[in-house]
Every structure is written in structure tokens, then in C-alpha cells.
Amino acid sequence: MTGPKIYLKRGGKDEAEKPFWISFADLMTALMVLFLVVMGVALLAVTKDVTEREKKEAQHNKEIEMVLDRFEAAAKRHEDDGIKIDRRRQVIDFGQRALFAFGKSNLDRSQEEVLRRFVPEVLKLSNDELGKRVLKRLVVEGYTDKTGTYLSNLNLSLQRSQRVLCAMFAVRGNTLLSESEKEQVRNLFLVGGYSFNAAKGNDDESRRVEMRLEFLGVDEHRQEVSQLPGNFGECALT
């Protein structure tokens, strides 16, 4: 007896065996491509940041050189006073006009007048638009020769630096600074003493004061100092 023929469909097994997930190799390839894209974007961002930083530093250094150029031009206007700019050390050198006798911190009248004649030039250059962008402050640095003890010379070098500030705040004599200029000096100048560090070739030249130009860093801004107007007091040195 023959019945109806039954045909079995064999495709189900093959379809079940087809992989549902992508192969491991394809997965790794996709991850690698994604990693490369992410790294490429990150490198571009870092490169852009570095480039912008380098541009800022280059512009900042250029502006420092411009300030030094202006100080050099100002010093040339006072050549008769022996003032010059040491660009390498970024220092205002007053030459023979800022030398002291052995063991002394006193400036004579002509030395004080030279300082007061040049300081208004310093203030003008320091407080214009360019100066405010790059110049942080001026440090009055006193030095001594190598004779004597370290601590006694340290005290003497501080007194020499202080004497320069006293000359700027003088209330008697010629070429006196105005009240406004004195305010600027108080906000911009700092006193430092260095004993016999950085002594020069001979003792006479070592007993000196200099004004060091201290510049701001990139993206750094000069801090405004709030002080009561006037109230300068008198020099404590005799």
C-alpha cells in the first residue's frame, strides 16, 4: 500500500548553523578603525594646542625684546649719566653713578639726581600698554665686595638697595618725583640684597646697585597692588 509521499525540507539545519554574530576578525578590525579615528582626533587637538602655545610664546618673547629696545633707547637719552641696558642679564646698569664707597650705603646728591631723572622714563615704559603686558616689576639689587662676613655684607647690600628707593621718595632736592610717580614706584619696585654674590672683576665695581627687569610669563598678568595714597613715610637710613 502506498501512501502520500512526504518530502522533508532540509534547509532548516543549514540556516541554524549560519553564524548570527560577526566574526572575531571583523570585530577587531572595526575596533582598530575606531581606535585610529579617536587617536587621530586626539593628536590633532594636541598639535593645535602646542601650536597655539608656541605662537603665544613667540609673540611674548618678541614683546620682551621690544620692551628692551625701548629701554635701550631711553638709556641712550641719558648717556651722559652713564646709564646702559644689559640685554643678556636684563638689567639697568647705572655704571659709576651707582657705586658706593667701601662699607657705605650713602649716595651723594648727584647720584640721587641721576636716579630721579631716569626713573620717570622707567615708569613711563613700564606702565604703557606694552609694558603692562610683559613687565612684572623692577628689582633693585644691591651688591658688595667680598670683604667682610656674609651676613654683614648681606645687610649692607640691602641698605644700598633701600638707599635707591629712599632717593626716589626724597622730599628735598632737585628732580623730585611727583606723588603719582612715587605711587608707581611703590607698586612696581622691589628691594633685594645679594651680599657678594655676582661680584665683578674688582671690589670698586662690585659695590653697586642695579635694576633688574623681571618679566611676566605667558598668560601671566601683573597684579594690581592696592595701597593707601601717599603715606610714604621717611627714609629710615641715616
Rank of each mutant, 00 (worst) to 15 (best):
R133Q: 15
L99F: 08
R186D: 06
L176R: 12
L188R: 05
K104R: 14
R87H: 06
S152Y: 07
Q184Y: 03
Q184R: 13
M66S: 11
R116H: 09
N187C: 10
T147I: 10
E141G: 03
R89G: 00
K104G: 03
L68M: 15
R160K: 08
D80A: 14
D69Y: 08
G131H: 05
Q111M: 06
T149W: 01
L177Y: 10
E141D: 09
L125I: 15
L123C: 07
R70K: 15
D108M: 01
Q90T: 13
L115V: 04
A101N: 13
N155P: 00
V114C: 00
Y150P: 02
C166M: 01
I92Y: 01
R88Q: 13
D93L: 03
F169H: 11
A167R: 09
K104L: 04
A98Y: 07
F189I: 04
L123Q: 06
V119H: 06
A75Y: 12
L115D: 03
A167G: 11
V164K: 05
G82D: 09
E72D: 12
Q96L: 00
T147P: 00
I83G: 05
N153D: 06
K136A: 10
K146Y: 02
Y143K: 08
D80F: 05
D145P: 04
R163K: 13
D108T: 02
L138N: 08
